[in-house]
Design a protein around this nucleic acid. Sequence first.
RNA 1: GGAGACGUGGCCGAGCGGCUAGGCAGAGCUCUGCAAAAGCUUGUACAGCGGUUCGAAUCCGCUCGUCUCCUCCA
Length: 491
Amino acid sequence: MTITLYNSLTRTIEPFAPLNAPNVTMYSCGPTVYNFAHIGNLRAFLFADLLQRTLRTVGGYDVRWVMNITDIDDKTIRDSAFGSQAWPTALGTQSDDPKKNLRDFTEYYTKEFVADISAIGIDRAHLYAMPNATDYMPQMQDLIRRIYEQGFAYIRSGSVYFDVAKWRKADVYGKLFTIDAENFQEGVRIDADEYDRESVSDFVLWKAQKDGEPSWDFEIGDTNCIGRPGWHIECSAMEYELLGLPFDIHTGGVDLKFPHHEDEIAQSKAGYGIEPTRYWCHNEFLEVEGKKMSKSLGNFFTLRDVIAKGIDPLDIRLLMLSAHYGTRLNFTFAGLESTRKARLRLQEYIYDLVEHINFDVNSMTDPAPQAIALREQVFAELANDLNTPKALAQIFTFINNNPVAGLQESEICGLIRFFRELNDVFAVFHFTQRPVVTAEPIPDDIQALATARWEAKRNRDFATADTLRKEVEARGFLIKDTKEGFVVERV
RNA sequence: GGAGACGUGGCCGAGCGGCUAGGCAGAGCUCUGCAAAAGCUUGUACAGCGGUUCGAAUCCGCUCGUCUCCUCCA
């Protein structure tokens, strides 16, 4: 099925066609590992995951997916620096080697990151690579040299800068983002000591060493510029190395359009002579009370914060899938609760399907028209720029109109197969037998009260039964009557 | 100051000129002695004001409000 995608480069929805079907190459801007990811960050990775899963399942492609780990930048250096308050206690004492501190620090948060994305249903096996920037030092340096040799970079005080003014004469700077060069608001967010550059719009490719910071030798021109890479260069270098240029799709959050992705395009083209990719896909932000979730605003939740509140990570995944990736999504705990209920309803339906079947699903070859029609509709929505909300709506409409009790075996079979396939994209459903609720042990005295109530009820002494029920409820337990008897649960 | 978005019923969210999703909550009902759970039924909303059109939530203009980006950002 042909998939259409909104391309930030053309600002239109376009049919997606890979350069070498059935292979698709895709690069996603990953995390900077200086802290735990918050769920706003996670939306970007969930979007990339949704996209690659849809390409596999709906598009039938083989996807080579790369997500980088930024393990060197201002923040990782700052927080791993000797004496940093941000040094995780789990790591023990710091060494006196800045490089080792940086590596230990970023490895720690990388591990946590992988655990987080696994919890929300991103399968590490789907990733071809999760490269660390610091493992691609020679490639980054090679790219910077190429840019320098092409005349689009200059060296100042040991740093290497990209010459945007010069590049603008050779090519368009502002492909993803309309840049109004006249109205650059200068000064507010600029770290003064970094700015030996000729123009504010120039960006750094390589930063000169500062005392006590990790650094690498770098022979360029006729000097050794000891230092470390700038922010944008890693992506360009790793894309070239791991995917080759041009590759098919590049994903990231909208905030990365400028400057990060714009600079990436300029660097890659200036150095390699080729633009990195043809489809740029960006996800919108997760908001809290109408504002971007961010560390600086302090309105963020990490995954572990949310899990600690008893939230199932699958509900976070489904919540994100219930809004289109290109719109802002307002995060609330009420919304999470609403998503949980919706998910459980779908899950109940699947449990019902599983319960009503007593033969091997895979051996069934008869087409079940209803299931085929549903699959067509739902996959068409996914193919339509990943319209997950609409796809979910189709599924709910279907289950509302088709209770499991009224289905033929062939339909049940077809539906199970459909839901399994769907789960290759959604990854929020279970296909086991409905689990038996394992009641936690009930204190003997509560059990005795409940039993007494059951006796009273059987004797039709409802007044006593109600009194006992209230007593049990006052103690924090709930009695649920069933056909055969009763169960007691903690409220 | 510049650029770009957005504003849909109590909440979340589709919609891309006519057929006016879906979820959650609420209400009513069924089943239950009661309760719980479950199931069923039920909702014409598009910020405001103009305009275009046979017809506008959808297109255009203005107003109001909100957000994002403009070299830390998913």
